[in-house]
Design a protein around this nucleic acid. Structure first.
Length: 348
DNA sequence: ATGTCC
């Protein structure tokens, strides 16, 4: 799906061929944010006829993006004040419940953003959006719950596909659906905690998974659509964020049944996590790393994570968005710019 | 990715 301007790691393409050759796999589609994962690539959709592959969904079942329009006005915006008030939501709200209400690690974040450009004024108005308010974007998933589900599954059945009618497939699907609900609610809980700290409220604009399994009809054939880092083109508006130093785009998907009704879920990694620190630590101080070119600030008290999720480690979001726009897959509603990115207040 | 991990 990618245009010539989109950089794609050769290993990710290899991994995509590997998945295409799995038993019963009918069709695979790589998104422009495709990048290598653990055996299988991220940023792709996989359609099988009868076999379900839990490992293709991965351990963060229900990972996704949710967006709110907050009541915080942009006028007289003080980032200092936001930074002081945003507080610490690293501790779960209930013990023993898989860290409900927390963001998690890796590429997960909560980010206050402002609208920097409106592309489609009609849709912007139709969804009652305002460029005078801050937005909150939450990228998180099912935390320890999804992880436990996949771990238990793989321990028993390994990587092989499961026939949909088998008891093990039914068991997995039931747990998978619970994880989707948990992930959806987790993103809402994260938002509510931040709203409390910031003394505001918000209206949910979207709350959409990009790691999940769905029963669909693809060009006349019933089967199982596995999305791994792929946003659905069938669930209304989606937001496709760049790195913390880049824009996010709120887009209206245009139906693309032949491409498995899916879109990129972000910019996609360019550098492996393990390489980031060595590439960056001699060039930038930690303080420099916590400010971005677009004027955003980062709260991240985990030094390794600061490097691992650096903007330099990600592809350009504009190249990813451009690919999909040129292919006629999206209608851009608005561009948003990061103001304050919350990763963790905790220690290393 | 992970109530992470020695």
């Amino acid at each position: 799906m990618a245009s010539k301007n989109t950089w794609i790691d050769g290993l990710a393409i290899e991994q995509l061929f590997t998945t295409a050759n799995l038993p019963d796999m009918v069709k695979v589609v790589g998104m422009p944010d495709l990048h290598p994962g653990q055996g299988y690539p991220i940023g792709a959709a996989y359609f099988s006829a009868d076999l379900i592959y839990p490992s293709l969904i991965g351990s963060d079942i229900g990972c996704g993006m949710a967006l709110w329009q907050t009541e915080i006005p942009l006028a007289k915006l003080s980032i200092d004040k936001l930074e002081r008030r945003i507080g610490n939501i690293d501790q779960p709200i209930t013990r023993g419940k898989y860290n409900l209400g927390t963001i998690g690690g890796g590429n997960h974040f909560a980010e206050l953003q402002k609208v920097s450009e409106i592309y489609d004024h009609d849709l912007f108005a139709q969804y009652q959006l305002s460029n005078k308010n801050l937005f909150l974007l939450v990228h998180s998933g099912s935390r320890g719950l999804g992880h436990a589900i996949l771990q238990q599954h793989v321990a028993k059945f390994g990587e092989k596909g499961l026939a949909q009618a088998s008891p093990e497939a039914q068991t997995y699907l039931e747990k998978h659906n619970n994880a989707l609900d948990f992930a959806h609610y987790n993103r809402q809980t994260v938002a509510e905690r931040l709203f409390d700290n910031l003394n505001t409220t918000g209206r949910e604009i979207l709350n959409v998974h990009h790691n999940f399994l769905e029963r669909v009809n693809d060009e006349g054939q019933q089967g199982w659509l596995h999305r791994k880092g792929a946003s659905p083109a069938t669930a209304g508006l989606v937001i496709i964020p760049g790195s913390r130093g880049d824009y996010s785009y709120l887009v209206n998907p245009i139906a693309n049944a032949d491409l498995l009704s899916s879109l990129a879920h972000g910019a996609g990694r360019k550098w492996r996590r393990a390489d980031c620190k060595a590439k960056l630590e001699n060039r930038y101080s930690t303080d420099q790393m916590l400010r971005t070119k677009l004027g955003g600030r980062i709260i991240c008290e985990d030094r390794d994570l600061v490097y691992e999720e650096a903007p330099q480690a990600y592809k350009s979001i504009d190249s990813v968005i451009e690919s999909m726009q040129q292919a006629g897959l999206i209608q851009i509603v608005a561009q948003l710019t990061p103001v304050l990115t919350y990763k963790t207040q905790g220690g290393d």
